Structures are given as C-alpha cells and as structure tokens.
Computed example of a mutant assay.
Amino acid sequence: MKIAIFGGTTEGRLLSYELAKEGAAVTVLVATEYGAEEQGEMAGIRVLTGRKNTEEMAAILAGQALCVDATHPYALEASGNIRAACEQAGVPYERLLRQESPMAERAVYVADAKAAADYLSGREGNILLTTGTKELPDFGSIERERLFPRVLPMAENLAVCESEGIPRHNIIAMQGPFCRELNEAIMRQFDIRFLVTKDGGRAGGFPEKLRAAERTGVLPVILRRKAERGKSFEEILALCREAIRCGSF
C-alpha cells in the first residue's frame, strides 16, 4: 500500500517509520533540506524535498492510497493546499493533530504575531522570539535592539534576520528543541522580559519554555492555535495499520 505523508515534524517522522515497518511504501514530503535531514533514511521510505504548489502535490499524490497531513500545527496555509491537492488527486486526506497544551496561568494569549507585536510595542524590555523567521516582519514596529530571534542555523534564516535589521549579536542560531536549563540560560544571558512563542506541544519543547519563563520572571506571549479537525497520532497509526492489513482505501 502506498501512503504519502507531509512531514517535517516529529510525528510525521515517527509515523513514517512505523508504517514502513508494517510494509507500506511511504512517500514523505518535506519543505526544506533541514526537514529531510531530520527525517533521515529508512528502507521503504522515499523522501521528497522542496515546497510545492497544489498541482505539483496532486501529481505526486496520484496513485497513493492515503495522504496524512502531519505538518506543524500552525502551518494552516500548507494544510489547506494539501487538502486541495488530495481532492484534485482523488486521494483520502487525514490530518494528524498534535495535542494542544493546557492554558498557561501566567501568560498573554494573542491571535497572531501582529497582535503580539501590538501588545509588546508599548512595553519595555527585551523579547525572545521563538516563532520562526516567517513572522519576523510582523515585529517591524519594535526597536531592533529589543528583538532576540532564535532561529534554525540555516543561511536563509540569517538572511531574513539581516534583511529585517536584527543586530548580529542578537541572533540566536540554534537547533532545538531545548531543555529548560538552556532556555533559562538564554533568558538570563540576554536579559529577556518577554517570550513570544507558539504552542508547539511537548514535541516542540513548549513545556520547557514555559518552565524557564516562570523561573526567570519572563512573561510568555503565546500565539493561539487556530481550531482544526483531525486525529491523534495513535488514531492515525491505528487507521493506517488497519488499512494495510485489509488492503482498504
């Protein structure tokens, strides 16, 4: 049975490994070379790298028995494109949802990065940005010296930081997820007062960020997730295993 997985996440990687062990022919699609490196290699898994439009996705999906969207919980545009490609290719679509974290008691929740910037623009103190470079332009109204973006150590990310006028000594280029101790050390080192973050769940090191913020007196500013419908990792895995056994789809 052929199964396509749009990955780049911990869940997508683990799901691909489990399904390959079950005998499925798995195609994993990731957006970046970093995603491909994290995915790794395994017999029974083909990895395709690079961002694709709906038509290109549909062409790849043709002949697949099932498509699992295991992209990041905040990648709503990508999920919409994947759904459209599945409809075009006539392939069943399943959304794998990462479990949402409980509401933090001491935090500010906002709709998106622009709302976070509006909240922070009238407040003093350094800001640790852990939302990625895609949202960095939304903080254009805030003094560059206050912004400390933590980004993956990739040339394109450094280029975005430079184009946005971030001082080089403010850029934290590291690969996570990070333990509580390292988060805490970074917050203390750069005299951070606010943490801007997404709810990346346990797989994204979200609990460790919140614990570090609590211990250092940093106020988390959390971008809310948009409501989605889907299934848990366990539900998707069980569905795929049953389909492989029965030869369904």
Rank of each mutant, 00 (worst) to 15 (best):
G8C: 05
G8I: 02
T9F: 00
E11M: 04
S16F: 12
Y17S: 14
L19M: 13
A20G: 06
A20F: 03
A25Y: 04
V28P: 05
E33G: 08
Y34V: 01
E41N: 13
K52G: 14
E56N: 07
A59Q: 14
I60N: 03
L61P: 03
L61D: 11
A62S: 15
G63P: 01
C67M: 15
V68M: 11
P73N: 00
A78T: 13
P92G: 02
E94Y: 05
L96H: 10
L97N: 07
R98N: 03
E105K: 14
E105Y: 05
A107R: 05
A107I: 08
A117Y: 01
A117F: 07
S121N: 04
R123Y: 00
E124V: 07
L129D: 00
T133E: 15
I142V: 01
I142F: 13
R144D: 06
P149L: 00
L152M: 09
M154S: 12
A155P: 08
C161E: 04
E162K: 08
E162N: 04
S163A: 15
G165L: 06
N170D: 02
A173R: 05
P177V: 06
N183K: 02
N183Q: 10
E184Q: 12
I186S: 06
I186H: 11
R188T: 04
R188P: 03
Q189K: 14
Q189A: 13
K198H: 03
G201P: 02
R202A: 12
G205H: 09
R215L: 08
R215F: 04
R215A: 11
V218G: 01
K231M: 14
E235I: 08
L237K: 14
I244E: 05
S248G: 10
S248Y: 05
F249H: 12
